[in-house]
């Protein structure tokens, strides 16, 4: 096997994993702390991409646009929390699913009315548009390296926030026992709003990182949200560590499956059968993984304490 190709694929898998982590971090927090199922998390990812695309056209600078788009997406999250989500915390999961599905329909259609159905490409500055040689023979696009760096930085920031600050302490406490935190006199409403906005900002970051590779497009969030749910279920709901590990796992398995499954199958079956089976199985792979993990560990890999 070609080792430099394998290394490139590992990096590609890591990049996908990191994007998934940025999305799952917010989702697992809202899920873990507020016990709120947010199907519309993917729409915030889409909004991040579109806001960044518009700002890039307006300011001419991707970097500036990206820095502005993160707080703006968080603001969108804040508004959604105040108007809709806040009323639903005490309700059953089913109501969450129904209402946030309604939110998806609204946000997707609004985005289509504002930005048009076609989608917007984001041009990158020249220094991000090239390739770098990581070491001899391993050349990858610069921007993908940036995604990995930014994602790891955000993960480290989140780790510090959750484990070494007072807010983080409240978040962790909330994830294990939210009634108790409320009873201790913590302003739980503000904490919830803050966490929701933080999750929205992270989703926006993921969206604007993806947009220069694919593009900002209507419904892009609905395509990734299910994978994100798979990640947080495998990782264990409410667990940041679980989300990180599961995201990287899914990213790697998905990428490596796509790259090597057909070669693997060709060892045991005819090449024609392999060409048919490999894409089907590689598309199923993450679901298979989830089913197996849940069958063995119904709580996921790293369930948050006392849940």
């Amino acid at each position: 096997m070609d080792t430099s190709l394998l290394f490139i694929q590992l990096l590609n898998g890591m990049q996908l994993g990191i994007l998934l982590f940025l999305l799952s971090a917010g989702l697992t927090l809202t899920f873990g702390i507020m016990d709120f199922v947010n199907l519309s998390h993917g729409s915030l990812y889409m909004l991040g991409a579109f806001i960044c695309a518009s700002l890039t056209q307006l300011t001419g600078s991707f970097i500036l646009a990206a820095l502005l788009a993160i707080p703006l997406t968080a603001l969108c999250g804040l508004i959604i929390e105040l108007v809709v989500v806040r009323q639903l915390y005490s309700r059953h999961h089913l109501d969450h699913v129904l209402a946030t599905f309604g939110l998806i329909l609204c946000l997707d259609t609004l985005a289509e009315m504002i930005w048009g159905p076609a989608g917007i490409a984001i041009p990158l500055p020249a220094f991000l548009n090239g390739q770098v040689e990581v070491f001899s023979g391993v050349v990858i696009p610069t921007f993908r390296l940036l995604i990995i760096t930014v994602g790891l930085t955000a993960a480290a920031g989140l780790y510090l926030l959750v484990n070494h600050t007072k807010i983080g302490m409240l978040i962790r406490a909330g994830a294990s026992n939210r009634t108790m935190v409320g009873a201790l006199g913590v302003d739980i409403k503000t904490l919830f709003t803050g966490v929701f906005a933080l999750g929205a900002g992270l989703a926006g970051l993921a969206g604007l990182l993806v947009a220069p590779i694919a593009e900002a497009s209507i419904g892009m969030g609905n395509e990734i949200i299910i994978t994100t749910f798979v990640v947080i279920i495998i990782g264990g709901i409410g667990s940041m560590k679980g989300a990180f590990i599961a995201a990287l796992l899914i990213g790697l398995i998905d990428t490596l499956g796509r790259s090597y499954l057909d070669d693997l199958f060709k060892l045991i079956m005819s090449s024609e059968a392999a060409e048919t089976a490999a894409p089907a199985i590689s598309a199923m792979l993450i679901y298979l993984l989830m089913a197996v993990i849940l069958a063995i560990r119904p709580q996921g890999l790293f369930p948050a304490a006392s849940r």
Partner: peptide
């Protein structure tokens, strides 16, 4: 390479391009 299509179509082709 035949990539995933349909609702959650694959849009990141890094693995395939490397191959």
């Amino acid at each position: 390479d035949m990539t995933k299509w349909g609702k959650d179509a694959q849009l990141d082709f890094s693995a395939e391009l490397a191959k």
